[in-house]
């Protein structure tokens, strides 16, 4: 069961809490209630008023995340702090959130994983607006290494979708077409220009392009699956990604 961040901190992590009183207060006040409030705002007509940092600090079980990342709790907390303190990125995302119909909700967790793992190759299936892509790229810029390769079905392109559906009867490999992008925006429109130098975006159907992508990379350090959520697609694409994931050691 997910452990609220505030509980995790109060148990044994006082030494690594941010030193400034205002930051401590902010950190302690945020947590599950704040995330629920942010989510409620995001789902309402007033979603543009939900501050990004409320979404960013969604609690996650620090000890368990530290265990799966083979690092200490202190490292996790430092990375979360680094993320929520990035005012430039926060302002950027707050500016684009109003147009995003759906956002990968575990943003602080994703940033923490990328900063801790320091991946060389990240493969992402599905981009949509690109908030999660931007978070991975932000972590890569801070780590000064890594490349993100994303695949996205250009589902916002109605003419493309109509043409494929007319020919095939449906979009091959997808059980639905998720129109999560604003009509006038393309895949990854929310990724800041200054983070795009480590990013390769492939537009196409995952089933058609994933095997070619995996054939040209030696190893994948981190894979994100957020495309077709049908059991068949998750299993097939998950197995394909798993086969190229880097081996760890005990």
């Amino acid at each position: 069961m997910a452990e609220p961040v505030t509980q995790s901190i109060s148990r044994s992590s006082r030494a690594v809490l941010p030193s400034e009183p205002i930051q401590v207060k902010t950190w302690r006040e945020l947590g599950f209630k704040a995330f629920v409030r942010a989510n409620r705002l995001l789902l309402s007509e007033r979603r543009e008023s939900a501050p990004f940092w409320l979404l960013a600090v969604k609690p996650f079980p620090i000890s368990e995340v530290a265990q799966i990342l083979s690092c200490g709790r202190r490292e996790i907390l430092l990375m979360v702090r680094e993320f929520i303190r990035d005012d430039i990125f926060r302002r950027h995302v707050e500016g684009v959130l109003a147009s995003c119909k759906g956002v990968f909700e575990a943003v602080a967790l994703l940033y923490t994983i990328c900063r801790t793992l320091r991946p060389r190759i990240v493969v992402e299936l599905s981009v949509a607006s690109g908030v999660s892509s931007a978070i991975v790229l932000l972590a890569m810029r801070k780590s000064q290494q890594g490349q993100l390769i994303s695949i996205d079905l250009p589902n916002y392109d109605k003419a493309w979708v109509d043409a494929v559906v007319a020919k095939e009867g449906r979009i091959p490999g997808r059980s639905f077409v998720d129109n999560s992008l604003p009509e006038d925006k393309g895949s990854g429109w929310a990724v800041p220009a200054n983070l795009r130098d480590r990013w390769e975006l492939i537009l196409g159907n995952t089933r058609e392009v994933l095997s070619g992508l995996l054939a040209r990379v030696d190893e994948v350090d981190l894979a994100l699956h957020d495309s077709d959520h049908s059991s068949e697609a998750v299993s097939e694409e998950g197995l394909a990604l798993w086969s190229r994931l880097r081996m760890g050691v005990f």
Binding site: L110, A223, D226
Partner: peptide
Amino acid sequence: VKIAHGGLLIVDDIDVSEGFDQLSDSLTRK
């Protein structure tokens, strides 16, 4: 990249699909 780290596969929206459970069935709790 830290050598102790194995690669990670992150799957979103696992509540709407059984695919994740099927994938992770053969793995250990850790």
